[in-house]
Write a protein that binds this DNA or RNA. Structure first.
Lengths: 227, 227
DNA sequence: TTTGTAGAAAATATCGATTTTTTGCCGTTG
DNA sequence: CAACGGCAAAAAATCGATATTTTCTACAAA
């Protein structure tokens, strides 16, 4: 009898996840130097697995590695943010259209389920960032494109969403003020479930443009400065 | 006075490049186990930097890491190949169109230059894979999309091209027979330089479809088996 | 024959220490 | 005063050894 088969990870992989989360949630400042001797003890791990984790993140573009000068958190810039928004629009719309073409009832069910959970969640105003909401919101967006048929397209979209959300969180933390959310998600759901490709694409495009504009403005006003 | 500023790399980064090349050129069999104790001495490097290199490649998707079971060369499959071709078509055409919109004279010059070098190169029939031609061919394709305006789109295209070329080389090595090349590149250049977006897109699409079809057929016939 | 298990062997993952390189500082020089 | 070295401190990168986990094999039991 085989045991539950819980995914076994290595220490380096654990740390890699934690570091990725810390970067994506703005807990590590963009451009910050990642001194091995400092953060090693912080994450309770030795040099070798720590470097391994950082190399992995470098491969994903979340950290930069410079010659013999160690690692830094990936930089942010207005130009890069606009690139993220532009590519996210192109690819996420493409993936939504493909999903509307190919999606089955499972796809529909997952959209409805994740949208329901997102709708029912009460955002706490206590912290600037509500991690549960972040998860639900991400899951919802990914559910929309979950039937696009291309693993790569899905992965690209997931990565772009991560990066966009990183910018949003950084902007929110920098201004110490909640983002204005445009809850037009429901309209996208309706169009998607009705298989109205044109309308759904239009609404998703608008949604990304609108939220993108909000982050661009917040980001432009004040350059990020977070712990 | 500053010195030439030759990019300084770390040992792990060097090995990472070599490993990437060995994977992309089919010198490492897809799915092959990468035993640390074996390949460490092979690349003349210790455990820690070797693991670091492998973790970086895992981040890029060139190797897979399984729990506590080490690293393997990324697998290949017909489904994955088709995904590569589909996404390559979508994104490379998109990038070409954007380049035609935004490209300046520098862009034109680089296309002409790289196409010239590619045209003049005599393929050696000695080895199945002519590494110089591979480089020139890649440079040419990248030059076409070099003015697309989006660093990410360019990076995605470059990665997809790498993966497609990997499949082509693996198929060629498996059949021990040169690929049939469709030299329609010149027609794409003409259309691009004339800023004829529709024609250029059409021709690029055809070119990718045609070469893709060739690799699919070769790949389908015989599953890869290379050193 | 299949199943299960214990132990040995092999391979992976991690730690601690050493080596190498960069960085910061300070006096010197043109 | 700026530029240039050279020293010392700090940080990065690597090595070698150890600890941990998996894999393999043999053998016993159902």
């Amino acid at each position: 009898m085989k045991l539950p088969d819980i995914e076994i990870r290595t220490g380096a992989q654990d740390v890699q996840r934690k570091l990725a989360a810390d970067i994506l949630f703005g807990r590590l400042r963009p451009g910050a130097k990642l001194k091995l001797a400092e953060i090693g003890p912080l994450y309770a791990i030795g040099m070798s697995p720590l470097r391994e984790a950082l190399a992995g993140l470098a491969g994903q573009g979340l950290v930069m590695q410079e010659g013999q000068r160690g690692f830094r958190v990936a930089d942010v810039s207005l130009a890069d943010l606009m690139d993220v928004i532009a590519m996210r629009t192109r690819l996420e719309v493409m993936a939504l259209e493909a999903s509307i073409d190919c999606g089955d009832v499972e796809w529909e069910a997952r959209i409805i389920a994740s949208f329901h959970k997102l709708s029912r969640h009460k955002r706490t105003q206590e912290h600037l960032i509500d991690e549960t909401w972040e998860d639900l919101h991400r899951s919802f967006h990914l559910s929309l494109i979950g039937a696009c048929g291309s693993p790569r397209l899905f992965t690209y979209c997931a990565g772009l969403l991560s990066q966009f959300d990183r910018y949003r969180r950084i902007a929110v933390l920098a201004r110490a003020q909640h983002a204005i959310l445009t809850p037009m998600d429901g309209k996208i759901v309706d169009a998607a479930l009705e298989r109205d490709k044109v309308t759904a694409a239009l609404r998703l495009r608008d949604h990304i443009a609108e939220s993108g504009q909000g982050v661009v403005e917040m980001f432009g006003e004040r350059m990020p400065r977070c712990a």
